[in-house]
Structures are given as C-alpha cells and as structure tokens.
Design a protein around this nucleic acid. Structure first.
Length: 492
RNA sequence: GGCGGCGUAGCCAAGUGGCUAAGGCGACGGUCUGCAAAACCGUUAUUCGGCGGUUCAAUUCCGCCCGCCGCCUCCA
C-alpha cells in the first residue's frame, strides 16, 4: 500500500507500527454549527481510508475528536444566549445526523476536549518543565523557536513565518510565533482550574493529548483537511514531539478542499454549503459518490452539473444492482447453466484485482469507482445477452458489489443487503395509489388506449415517479423531486 | 513576497517514458419498446495549456512561458 505522506512530500509504502494494526487519528469538527461540505469531504475520505484498512485485514483503531471548547463556540453561545457546553453538545448530536446520511461509520473513540482537561494540563506541564512553554499572565504559550524542527510538516521556516505572525490584543507572547496552550479565563467564559489559574486549553493541545492517550506515541496515520497542515498540525507536532522527544505520527494524510463554483468555500464569501441543506436535496449516496469522484488530495469543485452527473451515475449503479436482483428472482435464472457470457466469472477476479490496485495506490477512489462501473457494465451485458443466466455467477456479482461498497460506503448496508435508497413515497396511501394508477395504466395499454397510458406515465413523471415497462412487470422509481414534509412542493 | 498544487475530449475525471490515453455525465446512430424509460451495441481526445530541452521514444522527465487555484490569520 502506498500512501502520500505530507511530512516527506511523497508516496511511501505503508508499514504499520505494529504488524496487522493501524492507528488513525483524524481531526474532527469544532462543534459550533452544522457541518459543511468541506467537513464532509474529510469525513468521507478518512472513513473510506479506514474501511480500506479493514478490507485489507488490519485491526484499525480509529479516533476522531470533537473540539467542543473553543472561541467560536463561546462566541456563538453568547450570541444565542446559550451555555457553550449545551451548544457544543447539540452540534455533536447534529454531526452524527449528517455523518449517518453520508454513511460514515462511528469512530472507535470520539473524544472531546472537555473530557480530557487533566490529560491536557499534564501535557502542558511537561512542556513547561522542559522549558518549551512558559506562563505569562495566566496564559501558557509554546515557545516555537525552542523547537528546532518547527516547520517540518508545512515546509516553512520560522523566519518566513515571522512576517505573517500577529499578536492579538491582550496576548502576552514573548515571540509573535508562539501559540497558546492554555488561555486564562475571561469573565463569563468556561473555565477549569490549572496550575496557571482558571482557564481553558488552546486549540492545538487537545489533539496532541487525545491522540497520545488513545493511540500512543508514534501512531500510524494522522489525518485532516489540508488547511490544518499549518498551523494546527505543525503545532501538534511541536507539542507532542517537544514533550516526548519521539516522533508523534508516522504518516500525515491531508485531503484537498472543496470549492463551490470554482470559489473557495468560506464564510466571508457566503457560499458555505451545509450538509443539512444538501442532504435535503440530494441522496446521501450521490453525495458520497461525488465526494469520492476524484483523488482525495485534489481540489473538488461542487456545482450543479457535477452533482447532477453524480446523481445520474448513481442511478446507473442502482439500476445494475437491481437488474441482478431481479434476475435472481426471475424464472429465467438457472442453477446449472455454464457461465455462458464468455467468462464473467473470470472478469470478476480481474475487477477485484484492479480495485485493490487502485486503492493500494494512495486510495485512488476515482479509479476504484471506475471498477464499480465496469462491474455494472459487465453484468448488464451478461444479463442482456444470456437467456439463462447462471445463479452462482450472479450471486458472485452481488457479493462483489457488496465488497466494493463496503470500502467506498456508497450505499448503506443492512444485514448484508445494500440499501439502494429509501423507496418511500411518504406513506402507505401513496404506495397504494401508485399501484392503482399502474394497474389502470396497464389496462389501458392492453386496450391500446395509449393516450391514457401516456397521460398517467407523464403525469407521474412530473410528480417525480418514473415508470419503466418491462416484459414481465412495471418498475417505478423516484426521480428528482423532493417532497419535504408539510411544506408543500419544492423544486430542487 | 515565501511555500505548494493544478491545466487530459462538450463537462467531470483516472493515468502511463513506448503496446487501443480508464471510468462517469452529455451528445449522436442502432437494437429493444405501442411510444418511452432502462439495458445492450457502436461513434464521440491521431491527442494530453504553449515553447524549447533530455531520450531511439514524452502527455508522462527537465527548463522557461501563459493561465487557474490554495496555504502563509480561524477554517475540513
């Protein structure tokens, strides 16, 4: 397995700290709002990486924190007249709603800064004892210039950084480059007792403390968005390696940004896309497919065209899986016919090899997706050309879809069965009405009253239900339109 | 200014020092269909931003130029 390591700037063969085991720490969101598309990309990328290690048989320890003590939380809580802890807890809950929509699995541990104050204080104390940190007016700062390796991750020299560094009002840094490990509490702010007086941890220190606690020193993979390289991860390295004298993490993995219509997504541009909005409009599976549609280190542009293409390509996968399922249930399937498509079974082995090669090469999910589409193409062709498809080979196809999906996580899985979508029309009555309309239309078709038949089909299409006539039955599927509860009609 | 990335068909997007430059979306033609839809078959980059260089051979390596983007401040 080859992984691009930000620390060395190149792809390296992955060698775990302990054979058969891999420890991964990913920086999770600061819980002051719903997560946005950029957060979602990081989540999905690292969830997929984790899944691939599991596929490869590793025992994975996957840790993703929540930053629940932070200026942004305090400010927002103040603005809303809420207790910061309550606000943070609320958005932790909301995080899971969005993560679930993207089929992102729970981490093995989801540590929160607020639950690790003693560990944080202990780590700061170690840094103070080693004279890499100093107290000033109730704050504690890390002395960047005393850590000689500073800048090794972001490839910056301390002198380059000097120009950009600034000192906020009220800070008492000895050097503008220094950063806060501990912030003295101002009136009305959350506070914990410490050897330096009441206060709260700075942003970077929590990750050092929690990663070390759950994964130990020198764990395998530390991940996050590329914007965390500097200063967050650089500072984590300084703190952790300063305190232990040993390498903090072995492979640093960073995902690229999401842009929106070619612009960086940011608050100031007002173009932040919250997942809560997006999942209302698009199926989670389509969003996940889109998020994995290019290499994780490249920028990914979100726009209507790309998303539409994602939705349609998802349809292709669903259709194929459904065709296989239908065939397996149909009368034409045979137990003992030879694999008469000229080697579908052999093709499956090749596809699996290609899939692994793609993922082995720095988690090339775009290539891995192509394998999924090739699988769809292979089996569609087989079903089209074979009068008597072989049950065994079709089952293998379904199994392979499941194996691939287990890594890419596009469709949720329930008891080994891929859930392609919630085929819900919003109630039992709707389903019965639809069945009735389809039956009436079938009668019309038998009478060759195609005007009526087409009127029903066209009308349903406008309502977001597409009918497909097959030799044996009529299929329907939901397309496009969403029907939010209670609020009437919404056009996407 | 410092650091880093990108430029492949109408769009999205993999990729490689030389065998037919993946895959998806779209478009076009055909099969199927009452007509559709879906599916299938076929077509859709003699060419990989431009100019040089290295090489028997470059889209792939190097240099320069043009264009785009990100980080250097909180940010996935």
């Amino acid at each position: 397995m080859e992984i691009f390591n930000t620390l060395t700037g190149r792809k390296e063969t992955f060698r775990p700290r302990e054979p058969g085991k891999v420890g991964i720490y990913v920086c999770g969101p600061t819980t002051y709002n719903f997560i946005h598309l950029g957060n979602a990309r990081a989540l999905v990328v690292f969830d997929t990486i984790r899944r691939y290690f599991l596929y490869r048989g590793y025992q994975v320890s996957y840790v993703q924190n929540f930053t629940d003590v932070d200026d942004k939380i305090i400010n927002r809580a103040r603005a809303e007249g809420m207790d910061p802890a309550v606000l943070a807890a609320r958005y932790v809950d909301e995080y899971f709603v969005d993560a679930d929509a993207l089929n992102v699995r729970r981490a093995d541990v989801h540590p929160k800064a607020s639950n690790h104050i003693p560990e944080i204080i202990e780590l700061i104390q170690t840094l103070v004892d080693r004279e890499l940190a100093y107290e000033a007016g109730g704050d504690v700062y890390f002395a960047v210039r005393k850590f000689t390796d500073y800048g090794k991750l972001s490839k910056r020299s301390v002198d380059d950084l000097r120009a950009g560094a600034r000192v906020e009002v009220g800070e008492q840094k000895h050097d503008p480059l220094d950063f806060a490990l501990w912030k003295a509490a101002k009136p009305g702010e959350p506070r914990w007792d410490s050897p330096w007086g009441p206060g709260r941890p700075g942003w970077h220190i929590e990750c050092s403390a929690m990663a070390q606690k759950y994964l130990g020193v020198g764990f395998d993979i530390h991940g996050g968005g590329a914007d965390l390289i500097f200063p967050h991860h650089e500072n984590e390295i300084a703190q952790s390696e300063g305190a232990t004298g040993r390498p903090f993490a072995r492979y640093w993995v960073h995902n690229g940004f999401v842009t929106i219509r070619e612009e960086k997504m940011s608050k100031s541009l007002g173009n932040v896309s919250l997942m809560r909005e997006l999942t209302r409009i698009h199926p989670g599976a389509a969003l996940r497919l889109f998020l994995l549609s290019n290499h994780y280190r490249s920028p990914l542009d979100f726009n209507q065209e790309s998303m539409d293409a994602g939705v349609r390509s998802l349809e292709r996968l669903k259709t194929s899986i459904n065709l296989v399922r239908e065939a397996l249930e149909s009368r034409r399937v045979r137990e003992n016919t030879p694999d008469d498509a000229g080697g579908l079974a052999a093709a499956l082995d090749q596809l699996r090899t290609r899939f692994e090669a793609a993922m082995d090469d720095d988690f090339n999910t775009a290539l891995a997706q192509a394998v999924l589409f090739d699988l769809a193409g292979e089996v569609n062709g087989y079903l089209h050309h074979s009068e008597r498809p072989n049950r065994g080979v079709l089952q293998k196809v379904l199994d392979l879809f499941t194996v691939f999906n287990n890594v890419l996580g596009i469709f949720p899985e329930r008891e080994g069965w891929l859930v392609l979508e919630a085929e819900s029309l919003g109630g039992e009555l709707s389903h019965r009405l639809l069945d009735l309309l389809i039956a009436v239309r079938q009668d019309a078709r038998r009478r060759k009253d195609f005007a009526t038949a087409d009127r029903i089909r066209d009308g349903l299409r406008e309502l977001g239900v597409t009918l497909e006539d097959t030799a044996e039955s009529v299929r329907w599927k939901k397309t496009g339109h969403q029907w939010p509860e209670g609020n009437g009609r919404s056009t996407t």
